[in-house]
């Protein structure tokens, strides 16, 4: 008899793995000729963040997941802000 909770956790892990593969594919897919492509890359990395949070929850690490949930916007915000004002000066 397969435990139903183990089944749900395995499904979440598989979905997270698929999302991370999609993110990696999206990061290397676009060349630099698209305008403001850096923002699109940060958007795609947001998908990897959410997949990581789901995987941490499935691995019985809720404290790490909550910490990640609160800390991940700061890094994205810092990258976008630095690029926005650096691009203005160029």
């Amino acid at each position: 008899m397969v435990d139903i909770i183990t089944l749900i956790k395995s499904a979440i892990m598989i979905i997270a793995a698929i999302l991370i593969v999609l993110t990696a594919f999206g990061l290397i897919r676009y060349k630099d000729d698209v305008e403001r492509i850096l923002y699109a890359r940060v958007h795609m990395l947001g998908v990897a963040d959410m997949a990581c949070i789901a995987a941490l929850l499935a691995l019985n690490e809720p404290l790490l997941a909550v910490t990640y949930f609160f800390l991940t916007p700061f890094a994205s915000h810092a990258i976008a802000n630095a690029y926005y004002y650096g691009e203005e000066q160029r």
Binding site: H43, M44, P73, H77, A80
Partner: peptide
Amino acid sequence: ANSITLTPGTLSID
């Protein structure tokens, strides 16, 4: 702003 950044597809700059 934090919840905007947390949602994939939108990103707050300033």
